[in-house]
C-alpha cells in the first residue's frame, strides 16, 4: 500500500514532464501517451530495485530515456511531416499557442533520437548536471552537444514557422 502511494506520488510529480519528453521524441500525442504508460509500468516493476544512488527524478528520467530509445526499434516512429501538415492548416484547427507547441514538438522530432531527449530535458529546465547523470556522459561533452542541438532546433523551428 505504501508502495502504491509512493508510486502515485511519483506519477503525479513526474508524468507531465515525461509526457512532454515523449511528445518531443515522437511528435505525436497518442504515441507519447503510450510511451508514458510504458515508462511508468517500468518504474512500477523496478521500484524495488531503486537504491537511492541517484534521485528519483534521475532514475525515472533514465528509464524514460531508455524506453524512448528502445521504442525506436519496436515501432519505427511516424513523425508528422511538417510539409504535409503546414502551419496554415494547423491554424484553422488550433489556437495560436497550441499551434506553436505542436510545431515545437514536431521540430524536435526531426532531430536525431538522442538529441531529441537531451533538448527536451534542457527545455524542461533541468540542470546540465542532472541531464549528464541521466544519460551518463560528461557535463563538458553535454554542454557542447546542447550548444549544437539548440542551434539546430532554432533553425528548424524558424524555417517551418515561416511556412
Amino acid at each position: 500500500m505504501k508502495q502504491h502511494k509512493e508510486f502515485t506520488d511519483l506519477y503525479e510529480q513526474y508524468a507531465p514532464g515525461i509526457l512532454k519528453l515523449c511528445m518531443g521524441y515522437t511528435g505525436d500525442r497518442t504515441q507519447a501517451e503510450d510511451l508514458l504508460q510504458e515508462v511508468f509500468l517500468s518504474v512500477w516493476n523496478n521500484m524495488h530495485k531503486f537504491r537511492q544512488e541517484a534521485s528519483w527524478k534521475t532514475w525515472i528520467y533514465r528509464i524514460a530515456v531508455n524506453t524512448c530509445l528502445t521504442y525506436l526499434r519496436k515501432r519505427k516512429l511516424k513523425t508528422v511531416d511538417i510539409d504535409e501538415h503546414p502551419v496554415a492548416q494547423l491554424q484553422e484547427e488550433k489556437s495560436n499557442r497550441e499551434q506553436e507547441v505542436q510545431l515545437l514538438y514536431t521540430c524536435i522530432s526531426k532531430l536525431p533520437e538522442a538529441d531529441r531527449l537531451l533538448i527536451s530535458m534542457v527545455l524542461e529546465d533541468q540542470s546540465y548536471e542532472e541531464i549528464a547523470a541521466v544519460v551518463d556522459i560528461s557535463v563538458n561533452n553535454l554542454r557542447v552537444k546542447i550548444h549544437r542541438i539548440k542551434k539546430q532546433l532554432t533553425e528548424i523551428y524558424n524555417q517551418y514557422a515561416r511556412l
Partner: peptide, 18 residues
C-alpha cells in the same frame, strides 16, 4: 522556444493506482 515549451502544462492522464 523554451517559453513555448514551459507554458505547455503536459497534462497526463490521472491515475490512482498502478
Amino acid at each position: 522556444l523554451k517559453k513555448i515549451w514551459q507554458e505547455e502544462p503536459g497534462t497526463a492522464r490521472q491515475i490512482s493506482t498502478p
